[in-house]
Design a binder for these strands. Structure first.
Lengths: 102, 102
DNA sequence: TCCATATATCGAAATATCTCGATATACCGC
DNA sequence: GCGGTATATCGAGATATTTCGATATATGGA
């Protein structure tokens, strides 16, 4: 858990908004029938909502993944990203600790 | 309370370390006798500990102040900075909310 | 195998941040 | 008012981030 890298990943409004969107799958278009059983959202849907280029969003998801806030799972040609709630919580705990603990 | 500006202010290891140091006055040299009753730490002491230039530290303290994490109180030629605990807590609450709230 | 689709990576231009030294401002004591 | 000290602001060079289009890689289907 690298606080430095985590904070840097969150120091961007679009990346934070993506993390918010990923709280609820219904923020995105419905999954294809063959993906109905899979968790997470593909890059193209995130891109469409964020209105930034494909390469930018792929890069952003890479940063969020490196920081541990999301996991990406490849299924065929698609990568499905979803939040890693445990890592998010432990980041927040560590951050709060640094900010408040005497 | 501007989450954007707050996170940017914290996206720097020295500024975060300064906030940590300010938790405890004894991280710095003792105050001058005539300042014994004052709270906070002068810029020069922070600069000495951070080992960065005076202008950089003044700039950093300005950013932390703009974000609401510290207050600066002028007494004569000195500005004494101290943490604004309430603002720090409410930032953390808002941030945690953005990160976790469904 | 060849083509189409989804994602990742590369290289670059625009912009922002970091950090400094120099200078300005504010205040104190003489 | 003048000189000295503490802090703030300015301008600039170095570095990092943002964001893009182009290209590479991976996969699935005809």
């Amino acid at each position: 858990m690298d606080l430095e890298k985590s904070i840097a990943a969150l120091n961007n409004p679009v990346r934070r908004r993506i993390l918010e969107w990923l709280k609820d799958r219904s923020n995105f278009p419905p999954a294809l029938p063959e993906h109905a059983d899979l968790d997470g959202v593909c890059v193209a849907y995130i891109q469409e909502k964020a209105k930034l280029s494909q390469s930018t969003i792929s890069n952003y998801m890479g940063q969020l993944k490196q920081a541990g806030f999301v996991v990406g799972e490849r299924h065929g040609q698609w990568t499905f990203y979803r939040r890693h709630e445990e890592n998010i919580r432990s980041f927040l705990a560590a951050f709060q600790d640094e900010m408040l603990k005497s």
